[in-house]
Amino acid sequence: MSVSVKIKDLEKSYDKVDALKNLNLEIRPNELFGFIGPDGSGKTTLFRILTTLILADKGTIKVGNYDVVKNYKEIRKITGYMPGRFSLYMDLTVEENLLFYARIFNVNIRDNLHLIDDIYSHISPFKNRRAGALSGGMKQKLALSCALIHKPDLLVLDEPTTGVDAVSRKEFWELLKKMQERGITILVSTPYMDEAALCDRVALMQTGRLMSVDKPQNIVDNFPENILNVKVRKMHPVLNDLLGFEGAERVYRFGDAIHLATRRDAGEMKERIYHYLAEKGYQEITISPLEPVIEDCFLALMENPDK
């Protein structure tokens, strides 16, 4: 059965540091919801409160009809949690880890093995290998298998793709989509901005606050600035030359190009930048308007958190 997650007025601080500031958010049943933000944005704190491991200072979270404080035992039964650090037993084999988690949740591994077959089939050839000897991508698949063995309604994944290479990351997201088709509600956090596009909705987080919550495409569509993609033959010095360019809201490197954000007319800006760079002696200048990516939006929100 799919469950919703309702977060109300949630606050948490450690010593003097506010980890979460007045969080309000509702996640729908069977949604694949992403929390996108760097280290220190509060993602892990939120997940630890949600999975009943720590208490909030203020506010509530409800998973379906269960309250994280009053009904913590029920929540634990219906939740699969994959913490940020690899948390399996390194000196147990792949199969032993899975058996251990099945036993903890009091489920029969044979009855439930079909539930994780999509994932476990990738690692079952290595079922007698110790978990500590697996590659990063395979460890993640084992951790996901263990989080799913008791057939949870809610899956909470804390940075499952951090430190994982681009190919394994892609595979991992394909697996998550398959899990979602079974009706599970999935909450996943990630520091990789490009993974936002793979979620139904995302929350962009920074220093304990939700800066924006929406479908990724809506965040991009509602972005109020035009992005110009600037390339020249010699990229390295061009960033400094474009910083502070009149009409530019911000200028950042994006892979092999520079994204210049502006509120002005893109055509007029393009013209001016072209002449400016040509005069400076740059060669092979190409400037083209570009649909913003989530990272453009994130950078804008970081600089102007009140907008």
Binding site: P38, D39, P191, M302
Partner: peptide, 17 residues
Amino acid sequence: DEPTGGVDPITRRQFWE
């Protein structure tokens, strides 16, 4: 060795500078 893992997008770019 992975110096920018988990670092925010602005700081990541400052690091490259």
